[in-house]
Amino acid sequence: HNLTITQGKLFFHYNPKLCLSEIHKMEEVSGTKGRQERNDIALKTNGDQASCENELLKFSYIRTSFDKILLRWEPYWPPDFRDLLGFMLFYKEAPYQNVTEFDGQDACGSNSWTVVDIDPPLRSNDPKSQNHPGWLMRGLKPWTQYAIFVKTLVTFSDERRTYGAKSDIIYVQTDATNPSVPLDPISVSNSSSQIILKWKPPSDPNGNITHYLVFWERQAEDSELFELDYCLKGLKLPSRTWSPPFESEDSQKHNQSEYEDSAGECCSCPKTDSQILKELEESSFRKTFEDYLHNVVFVPRKTSSGTGAEDPRPSRKRRSLGDVGNVTVAVPTVAAFPNTSSTSVPTSPEEHRPFEKVVNKESLVISGLRHFTGYRIELQACNQDTPEERCSVAAYVSARTMPEAKADDIVGPVTHEIFENNVVHLMWQEPKEPNGLIVLYEVSYRRYGDEELHLCVSRKHFALERGCRLRGLSPGNYSVRIRATSLAGNGSWTEPTYFYVTDYLDVPSNIA
């Protein structure tokens, strides 16, 4: 807008934040220059609390790290170098490059900038070799853009010569660093050979998330399962459950009422301010606690030095998902009996873990797994792929695949051998790939016309006998059925096997 004052003059007093240069501009645009008398524009009460600059400061050096910015700028000295009290560095987070010096300023003089007072450097006698002032900004957020400017702080001049310097606002972004852990990993099994893994992005990506790394490792069953005799009275049979499938998407929606109208769909109840505040506090606490764990609990591995020492970490090797089922080394339970199943799973520490690289999504279907087997899954978020990966501390989750139908069934015939004193040795093959492992066998036998009897055969007993022995049988026709019990439950009964026990007292003698 054009402003013209045809008559009258300007009068400025007691404006401590208004620089004289701005008042002189007002004289020019209003056409009143030359009308004012000496005392109409006070030299001592206008701009006496402001830094009124008329020179431009330029930054000469900028260096960044993930949490620091090192700045240096060209030296500046007023005509009387004693008038320079120091520099004021202003900075704040700036997602967009549209910041002005006066953003967030209120009537009390406060604003949204963080201000650092910096002492002037030592003055050199040689004007050509003056030290460049600077400042190291610490405690910054990774991968965050900051708006920065600097200006001088000078003393009051009796001659009211307006001098000083100020830089333009520059924008500097800190470097990326390792992201925080992925949030809320959930693993479920939808079949006997697959596990579905879902997660949420890290709360602090500290860069642009480029991919996720998912490692999985087959877990050995508890050692007590191999040692305890679950045929003993009072000892509860062990059981394991597989990871249940995901709930429906509708039930997972946030901010939804727990109660549904019987007449149909209901609208979600909005969260109160107290609920939102509580969630923010919980989120802040979780982030602080995660940072504490990362800094205190997890110790970084030592990389190899120039002395030739090897990095103890196993090298990563990509495998196809079809090879995942046989990740671990199978060892027989008892070496003397080769027909026992290889369900003991000690994992070799030198073995390469299978892994998958996930790009542009937060889910993965891990296939080719062994049925009813526990897996430990390790999830890392990465925001750099080359020249070397920059990934987060791992988040861990466990899951067990679903049982395989008929995996616990005894394959092959049940054979028998009759000894003296009416002892019958029953023999059968253990299931080759049971659900988890076989903890015991149930032997059901009966003599024709009598009630059915049951015998429990422990895992250890089966390994020693290759089956079991029935003792003290009365003469007669017998039928026997056997079924295995694994961590997933009972298998199917075998087809009945028949044998006849004679009275050993009636056996004919070869003595003449």
Rank of each mutant, 00 (worst) to 15 (best):
W242L: 11
R316I: 10
A394W: 13
L321C: 15
N490T: 13
S305W: 08
H294N: 03
S274P: 10
K236L: 11
L228W: 13
T303M: 10
H211Y: 13
F215Q: 11
P205D: 15
T328L: 11
Q380W: 09
H294A: 15
D323I: 13
A399K: 13
S474Q: 10
C391H: 03
G472D: 12
S268N: 14
S251D: 12
V214F: 09
S262W: 03
L426F: 03
T415G: 05
S341I: 06
V327S: 12
T373S: 10
R471H: 07
I366K: 04
L369D: 01
D408F: 00
K361D: 04
D229L: 07
C468N: 01
M427I: 11
N208R: 06
P475D: 03
S479G: 03
A381D: 00
A394R: 06
E495W: 13
E417L: 10
E351A: 06
V345P: 15
E282R: 10
R313H: 01
C231R: 02
E442W: 10
V423S: 06
G325W: 14
E221F: 11
N435F: 00
W428V: 00
N477C: 07
P312T: 11
S239K: 15
S203A: 14
T401A: 03
G306P: 14
D323R: 11
G207R: 03
T340H: 04
W216V: 12
A381M: 02
E495Q: 06
L369I: 02
P270Y: 07
T485M: 08
G308P: 14
L505M: 04
E249A: 13
L505E: 08
V296R: 07
T485D: 11
Q219P: 06
S284C: 01
L237S: 06
H461G: 10
S315C: 10
P300D: 15
S315D: 08
K361E: 10
C267G: 03
E351D: 11
S243P: 12
S251K: 14
A484R: 00
Q252P: 07
E417N: 03
S444A: 04
G306M: 14
G308A: 12
T502G: 09
R318I: 10
K302M: 11
Q275R: 08
I410P: 04
A399C: 10
T373A: 05
S304R: 07
T494E: 00
L379W: 03
E281C: 05
E279V: 05
F246I: 10
R459Y: 08
Y504K: 13
I366F: 13
S342W: 02
V443R: 01
P238W: 15
R218A: 06
T303G: 09
F246T: 11
S223V: 11
F499S: 00
P245S: 12
N295R: 10
E356Q: 10
T485Y: 09
V327N: 07
Y500H: 13
L440G: 06
T340G: 07
H371N: 03
L440C: 14
S223W: 11
K460G: 05
E404D: 10
K236S: 13
D506N: 15
K460P: 10
R400A: 07
L228K: 07
R483Y: 02
P300S: 07
A263S: 12
Y259L: 04
C269V: 08
K287E: 15
D506L: 11
R316M: 10
L487T: 07
P332R: 07
F289T: 07
K357V: 13
P403H: 02
A381R: 03
Y292F: 07
E389H: 12
V457E: 02
L440A: 10
S239F: 06
P349M: 08
V297W: 10
V327P: 10
M427L: 07
S367E: 04
C266N: 12
C266Y: 12
R390Y: 03
R481H: 04
G207K: 02
S239T: 14
Y478A: 00
Y498F: 08
V439E: 07
S320L: 11
L437A: 12
Q275H: 11
V334M: 12
P270M: 14
V365K: 02
H425S: 13
T210G: 07
T502S: 07
A395W: 10
T485S: 11
N326L: 15
E221K: 11
V358Q: 14
H211K: 09
C266P: 04
V299T: 07
M402Y: 15
Q429T: 04
G489V: 09
T288D: 12
P300R: 12
S444R: 05
K236N: 11
A395L: 10
K233I: 08
V334K: 15
R301S: 05
E389D: 10
D311E: 15
H425V: 13
V424L: 12
V214I: 14
E362H: 10
Y396G: 12
P332F: 15
Y504G: 07
S458L: 08
G472W: 10
S223C: 14
G374A: 04
R313I: 07
T340A: 07
R318K: 13
Q275C: 07
Y478K: 00
R218E: 10
D506A: 10
V443G: 00
L280S: 05
T347I: 13
E265K: 09
Y441Q: 01
M402A: 10
T288C: 09
V345Y: 12
L455W: 05
H425D: 04
F226Y: 10
A220E: 15
Q380M: 07
E362L: 06
L369F: 04
P475S: 08
S251H: 15
K460L: 07
K271V: 05
D229K: 05
S305L: 07
L505N: 09
Y445F: 05
S257H: 05
E282H: 02
D323G: 14
R390G: 14
S474F: 09
L464N: 15
D222V: 11
R481W: 04
T210Y: 06
R483L: 02
T272L: 10
P338D: 05
S492W: 00
F355N: 13
A407H: 13
P434H: 04
S257E: 15
E290V: 05
R471A: 15
V457Y: 05
E362P: 05
E351R: 06
A220V: 09
T373M: 08
S315E: 12
P300E: 09
R481C: 04
T494V: 01
H461K: 09
Y498K: 12
R481Y: 07
Y498S: 10
E258V: 06
C269Y: 10
I410H: 05
R471G: 09
P244I: 12
D409P: 00
V359F: 06
T494F: 01
S479R: 11
V327L: 11
A263I: 12
E249W: 08
C267H: 15
S363T: 11
E389M: 15
S398N: 06
S320D: 09
T307V: 08
R483A: 04
P508K: 07
N490I: 02
S248T: 06
L505R: 05
R400N: 05
V439P: 06
P403F: 07
T386I: 15
G412D: 12
V214L: 08
R240N: 13
L437V: 07
